[in-house]
């Protein structure tokens, strides 16, 4: 168990190092160099030289990378050229909105995806099975921006029951004291239930838009994995004991079928972080995605570096958690093989 986790940690460390190298080199792949990119082509040579000195671009490459790594380890991503704020502060400001959206989308996709998968598997070959699987195929095939726009059209325009932009109505925005940055938590902490309901309403459409594709994938994965497990001899053993069907499925089949589903969930998280950029754009969601897009447009090198590195670390963290969940689900990982 311990060595398994140690191995996971080490491999994540190596992956992060690789990502940091890519992110670092990104700056040097821009035509001209970073200073030109920032100051524009009409900048004076003097200004460029000063900026290069400030950014350390005149030092040898390995020196620059070492300094970059050193700073990153100390959570110092430098300052944004655009806002002059430390990048880490910007991330802190924008991240909660994205986290809220991503977590909501994830909860939505896991909850409904697994449920649909189980229903389809248990009622295999019936109308329910075909129905839920066709719906999920449609879900996978749907472009995210099209789905978002359709939802807005349907629920904000024709049936104006849900808001389509932002995290809160503007009137309420000033009302909410930001403590954690998660509006759902903040509003509850302050007992501001009007704002809470409003925040939930704002979250629904973006979360559905972002979560539909993962939901469909999780549903299909759950179904096929559960069907495979239901054919295993130990399921027959469980029935032979006289256990009722729901108990066999809930206890004996579910846990075994969850390993591939967990893998998919971990990988889907990466998709959610990427999809958030599009979704946030559609719904004017003030999150990391919108911020990162703006940083790319403004050639804000430090901000992009910091943002990408942050998102990559987050993705790996989630997959580390998935690895630990494997160990929880599967005793063959947790308890060493001592069979003789």
């Amino acid at each position: 168990m311990f060595s398994y986790l140690l191995q996971r940690f080490l491999s994540i460390g190596l992956s992060l190092l690789a990502v940091s190298l890519l992110v670092f080199l990104m700056v040097h792949l821009i035509p001209g160099d970073a200073a030109v990119a920032i100051l524009g082509e009409r900048a004076t040579e003097k200004a460029l030289t000063e900026l290069r000195a400030e950014m350390g671009l005149d030092k040898p490459l390995y020196h620059q990378y070492a300094k970059f790594l050193w700073d990153v380890v100390h959570l110092d991503f430098g300052r944004s050229f655009k806002t002059k704020q430390p990048v880490i502060e910007e991330i802190k400001r924008y991240f909660p909105a994205t986290a809220e959206l991503t977590l909501a989308a994830m909860a939505f996709s896991i909850l409904f995806g697994i449920a649909a998968g189980i229903i389809a598997a248990v009622s295999r070959g019936t109308f329910l099975d075909y129905f839920s699987m066709s719906i999920s195929l449609a879900g996978i095939s749907m472009p995210i921006f099209w789905l978002g726009l359709m939802l807005i059209l349907l629920f904000s325009y024709f049936l104006p029951i849900l808001p389509s932009t932002g995290r809160l109505d503007v009137v309420l925005d000033l009302d909410v004291q930001s403590r954690t940055g998660f509006y759902l938590i903040d509003t509850l902490l302050t007992g501001n239930f009007t704002a809470f309901r409003n925040a939930v309403a704002h979250l629904i459409l973006p979360a559905i838009t972002l979560g539909t594709i993962p939901l469909a994938i999780i549903a299909r994965m759950t179904r096929s994995s559960l069907l495979e497990v239901l054919n295993q001899p130990y399921i027959t053993t469980a029935y032979a004991k006289g256990l009722p069907r729901w108990k066999v499925i809930r206890k004996h089949a579910m846990k075994n079928s969850m390993v591939p589903v967990l893998t998919i969930i971990g990988l889907e998280f990466g998709y959610l972080l990427g999809g958030a950029i599009l979704t946030e754009h559609i719904f004017s969601w003030p999150g990391l995605g919108s911020w990162l897009r703006a940083a790319v447009e403004a050639r804000d090198v430090r901000a992009v570096q910091g943002g990408v590195l942050f998102v990559a670390s987050l993705f790996m963290l989630v997959n580390l958690i998935v690895d630990m969940l494997y160990a929880y689900v599967d005793p063959r990982i947790r308890v060493g093989n001592e069979a003789t």
Binding site: P233, T237, K251, H252, N256, R332
Partner: peptide, 9 residues
């Protein structure tokens, strides 16, 4: 080998 559920004691 396969008649016992691998994830329970």
């Amino acid at each position: 080998m396969t008649s016992l559920n691998p994830v329970f004691t």
